[in-house]
Design a protein around this nucleic acid. Sequence first.
DNA 1: AATGAATGAGGTTTCATTCAT
DNA 2: GATGAATGAAACCTCATTCAT
Lengths: 227, 227, 227, 227
Amino acid sequence: MTSLRHRRRHTSSLPRRSRLPRAERERQTLEAAHALFAERGYAGVTMDDVADAVGVTKPLLYKYFGNKERLYLACMEPAGKLLTRTVVDAIAPTTTPADALRAGLLAFFEFLDTDRDAWRVLFDETLPVSGEVAQRVAEYRDRITELVATAVLSQLPPSGRVMDRSEVEALSAAVLGAAEALGRWWLRGEAISARKAAELLISTVEPGLRLRTRGGRSSDETPGKVI
Amino acid sequence: MTSLRHRRRHTSSLPRRSRLPRAERERQTLEAAHALFAERGYAGVTMDDVADAVGVTKPLLYKYFGNKERLYLACMEPAGKLLTRTVVDAIAPTTTPADALRAGLLAFFEFLDTDRDAWRVLFDETLPVSGEVAQRVAEYRDRITELVATAVLSQLPPSGRVMDRSEVEALSAAVLGAAEALGRWWLRGEAISARKAAELLISTVEPGLRLRTRGGRSSDETPGKVI
Amino acid sequence: MTSLRHRRRHTSSLPRRSRLPRAERERQTLEAAHALFAERGYAGVTMDDVADAVGVTKPLLYKYFGNKERLYLACMEPAGKLLTRTVVDAIAPTTTPADALRAGLLAFFEFLDTDRDAWRVLFDETLPVSGEVAQRVAEYRDRITELVATAVLSQLPPSGRVMDRSEVEALSAAVLGAAEALGRWWLRGEAISARKAAELLISTVEPGLRLRTRGGRSSDETPGKVI
Amino acid sequence: MTSLRHRRRHTSSLPRRSRLPRAERERQTLEAAHALFAERGYAGVTMDDVADAVGVTKPLLYKYFGNKERLYLACMEPAGKLLTRTVVDAIAPTTTPADALRAGLLAFFEFLDTDRDAWRVLFDETLPVSGEVAQRVAEYRDRITELVATAVLSQLPPSGRVMDRSEVEALSAAVLGAAEALGRWWLRGEAISARKAAELLISTVEPGLRLRTRGGRSSDETPGKVI
DNA sequence: AATGAATGAGGTTTCATTCAT
DNA sequence: GATGAATGAAACCTCATTCAT
């Protein structure tokens, strides 16, 4: 546990303005907590850290947010909603699985590009493995996975289903995993543009997926057996 | 973090045999620790848990391994070596990028199938985000990523390099991420065979990769058999 | 202590009417606090709970009542007065020790039956063991004990005192303790009528008491009707 | 809550002898904790208090006893066992209800006299109202109540049952309540001998009980209606 | 007359780690 | 070579109480 923690204790960068209206304080708190969580992860941030960063004492945090998990949730929820919304909206107007996949992944990486911290909070690796937060995060991931699955992979051609339920699930998990890992890699150095990262993934995954969902056809193609 | 913990405190399943030769003790300890870490993750295991499970006292653990991180490292190292070795060996005899990819991923999933616990330790999600372990884990992942990169993607066709270094890295990270996520999904239910999971991933990723390494032309290309 | 608490946080059942005359506010506050204390005991109620229940802010509570102890006292006082008054009034018209005892205990249980909450506040088991409240509660109990003592036991027959001061005190404490315990038992299930509970206690204690106050002879005595 | 606490923080009266064998340390801890609990009640004692009193740090307490409740339980259990045992043993050889009652109450008060602190721990008024301790205490009280009920009151004469189950329960609760209250009174000043206190209670309660259980008879007695 | 905002101080519990034998 | 005993340091959370408006 020790190793998770930077003892850098933000020494209240904000001027210790007291007596803010609750809404304002909450906003401020969320902002500070969000930054901290993004930087060090759930486990690497203590309630004292947050309190210090905001310039208040812990009891206030607890009054406003209940407990650490709920504070985290309050930071994560908007990000989660925004991401799913963004992806859904991007996919909505598309008409083919290939377009849906492309649009979805582009949206995913644009979200990452636009709000790195939100993405970090959403894909934090130090989250508790059980409890409220774990559950909620699982929900978000499931939703996105399902999005991938439903929108992209299960739009099967009339010619017939080639994949069963578990294969679709597996593939969705894999694609999301790839996106997440690529996102993490990107955050490490931003060596290429986020858009390019997205395109890279799309162009890598799309052909294989297309072959699969088309069940293999196309005039000039001689697809072999799919798996 | 509390939520990580099963209070089941292994009550020393091993008979408390004293005075073993150090090598034997170490082996035994590693085995027990490995099982524990695989089951509950780094953060979910205390040094007390390990000591109890081995039937030895904590000071001995510290004498032999220095600290918790190094104990974990000692558990992870063999697994890491084995995995890289397995993948390397699988890739070695191949001659084309496509074959290398296929062989590598098959080896990856066979490793997972053969030794779930080793895989879990290697891909634990509760690891500290900084410190010795974090660094070492990063090294392993980098090594495997590089393996994917070197062996698979940079075997470029004579026609010329189409990707620069960072794109290769990015793609490797993505492929590894997909494999990892798929591995995790697989461990959750083993809904399909490990081999099938591998094939699924291969067939999804291979066409895109092949297109790219061949120079990205597409109009006039004659895709061979998929997989 | 945690275990004392129901996290049910009364969500302000009363409409938040502002600017009431102080007297009215106090009445209202007392009522709400009383209900809360009766339900969860002193230790199980926080000032926040009370404030929420009344629909008023904590500073007001402190302005009106000073602190938690005094708030409790303010709740307890009327109950205490009412109980002592009730018992005194019941005893007053009686002429014999036996009658006084019977009347007192019947009044005690009728009070319990009539106002369970007041009784609960008066005989709360989660009270601080020292401080203002403790002292005041002790005073009330002493007063009732004394009532029992004075009215019932010290009405000695002309034949002469058989008991000294401390024996009387002891017996009073015991009788009150029995009544209290019986009251608590009754509240747990109300398995019999409160009156019957009273009669039960009276009939158990009265003969012994009568024997004693009559001088403790027993061989040749002619016990009159029992109760 | 504050009021429960004497801030007198025992400043380690024992010489800070380190490295005691566990058994010894446990004994010592139990002793200190027992004394503290007896003096200030469960709620009035913090783990820090206990640790200070023993001259160790809290983690040791937690290693040996698990948590505060279990530490209390460890203090209470022997006392509880001893008391029930004492009472049972006292009652065993008796043959009549009256004798059983007398023997039981004498034993109860002798226990109190012999070990005031144990009695205080057993009849602490600051216990949590729910949780392990609460349950265990309830068990002990129920056991003793049942003892009173079974041994004393339900040994009914052939002539016929006069009381139903709930009346017996009620009476048992009342008698135990009387004993407890008398015990508490006694502890306040020890104004009379414990034995005398017991006799006082016995002689007060016994006649009433005898009348009841005999259903009213005895050659020279003309018992009126029993309730 | 009343409030919203804020806190000091403490409570239980946990865990990696080290002394002293 | 190995142990039993012990701890420093912190984490989460709560509650009576007061400040500033």
